[in-house]
Amino acid sequence: MEIIEAKDLVFEYIRRDEEGNVEGITCALDHVSLDVKQGDFVAILGHNGSGKSTFAKHINAILYPTEGTVWVDGKDTSREENLWEIRQEAGMVFQNPDNQIIGQVVEEDVGFGPENLGVPTKEIWERVEESLKAVGMYEFRKHSPNKLSGGQKQRVSIAGVIAMHPKCIVLDEPTAMLDPNGRKEVIRAVRALNDVEEITIILITHYMEEIIYANKVFVMERGKIAMEGTPREIFSRVEELKALRLDVPQVTLLSHELRKSGLAIPEGILTCEELVEALGHVARG
């Protein structure tokens, strides 16, 4: 069953000068069609300005298509009567955790979403508890959010989204501002939500090693989908990715370089273990 379906999605915005005169039209999304199945872990790559975030904002109806249609769980995002349900079903997490946290205490912040949905008080507290447990932040429930580390804050933001009981979470560069440990914490929490709670994940990132867990990757370029496939398929195309201003994980790049130097190593190596195994074959001849 498709949780997200985009058909011939076009998004244009009008650029204006200081007096408000139209200077031109920029086409940020150019006939994008894609499907995401319930329970998928999808990653979207692309350089700055390729249209990733614009696409993400269509998933919970922050932006509406200029042409084409986006359906979230079968509901057309351009119809106003669907808005509330779509925003509850598709949650969003942004880059800067400081812009997303409003509560004075962690558990209040997480309870803000369900409270606005009109959930009964008793159930709000149940949801707060389960959400904080899902991201491993339950022991911090009485803390002030501004005393937490970046990774912890971002996990609280994610808990705030989970408490709305979404079917799908869109994360737009959730780790860009975090230190290595914070990045690991967030990605671990996201994977657990996907594996255990079966929430559909759409992850936008510039860190290539974060997407090796995805089951599908889309690469965007100039508002179009330039490549799609599994992480292994995508990362086997090192040169193409570089031409799109992207990169591959270090282990993939090292394997690619070794292959170019004449070693019999397959393309698309994603983990340290795979490289060790491949080199084992080489060493044994």
Binding site: D179, P180, L254, C272, L275, V276, L279
Partner: peptide, 17 residues
């Protein structure tokens, strides 16, 4: 809360193998 570059981990794993 930090790490080494991925390359360092790869070299460690190769050594162990």
């Amino acid at each position: 809360g930090l790490a080494a570059p991925q390359v360092t981990y790869i070299m460690q794993a190769l050594r162990k193998s």
